[in-house]
Amino acid sequence: MLITVSGPPGSGKSTNAAGLADRLGVEHVSGGDIFREMAAERDMTPVEFNEFAEEDPRFDRKLDRRLRETAETGDELVLESRLAGWLAAEHADFRFWFDAPLSVRAERIAEREEKPVDRARAETERREASERKRYRELYGIDVDDLSIYDAAYNTARWPPDRFLDVLVATVEAYDPAADEGKAPIEGVRYDF
């Protein structure tokens, strides 16, 4: 089963995707980890690299192509990235969207990256604006359109261990027969 996990920065994608993969006994691939590695290779922060990528779409395409290839060849896998649901739209058995209020996400990021909350919030807003622009220009994707997802959750509503119980229960209740004959997602240029 291929499961995708998407959402904005600080929504709990990485933590919950890793936990879900562990609980299901499958592999976890993180687009965020790959993106941060690409930024570090250029001695940039993720925000700086986002803005740099606005000027040169090769970096987005390289990352997105790698994630799409993973989706095409991955079987027992939780694929996690901002665009995972879109990149694996034709292959995913189940697509999750995670979100939380910006104030909660900024606090999570500030704690994780050991920086002031107001700085984390400002950087997150810049990063999201950059990504929203790039994804629309490159692929015609509106990241605010959640219609492609099978389930969307506000991760601030549950403690982390209880939220994993919710995710596992959701996956276990999934009926693959319900997907037979589903149409491809409209309006996306699949030229990753």
Results as ranks from 00 to 15, higher is better:
L2P: 07
I3Q: 03
G7E: 04
G7M: 05
G12W: 07
A17L: 00
L20H: 03
V26P: 04
E27S: 14
G32T: 02
D33S: 07
F35N: 09
R36W: 03
M38K: 05
A39N: 04
M44D: 02
E48M: 07
F49S: 00
E51Y: 14
E51F: 14
R58S: 13
L63W: 05
R66P: 11
R68Y: 13
R68N: 14
A71R: 00
E72W: 08
E72R: 13
G74F: 03
D75S: 11
L77Q: 00
L77N: 01
E80M: 08
A89L: 11
A92F: 03
F94L: 10
R95Y: 04
A100P: 01
L102N: 09
V104L: 08
R105G: 05
A106M: 08
K115M: 14
P116I: 03
V117F: 01
V117P: 01
A122T: 12
E123V: 01
T124Q: 04
E125N: 08
R126G: 09
E128M: 09
E128G: 08
E128P: 07
E128Q: 14
E131N: 07
R136G: 09
L138V: 07
I141V: 12
D142Q: 02
D145N: 02
L146K: 14
L146I: 15
A156W: 05
P159W: 10
P160T: 10
P160V: 06
F163D: 03
L164F: 03
L164T: 06
L167Y: 00
V168C: 01
T170S: 10
V171N: 07
V171I: 11
E172T: 15
Y174T: 15
E180P: 13
E180A: 15
K182S: 10
P184V: 08
I185T: 15
R189L: 14
Y190M: 15
D191N: 15
D191R: 13
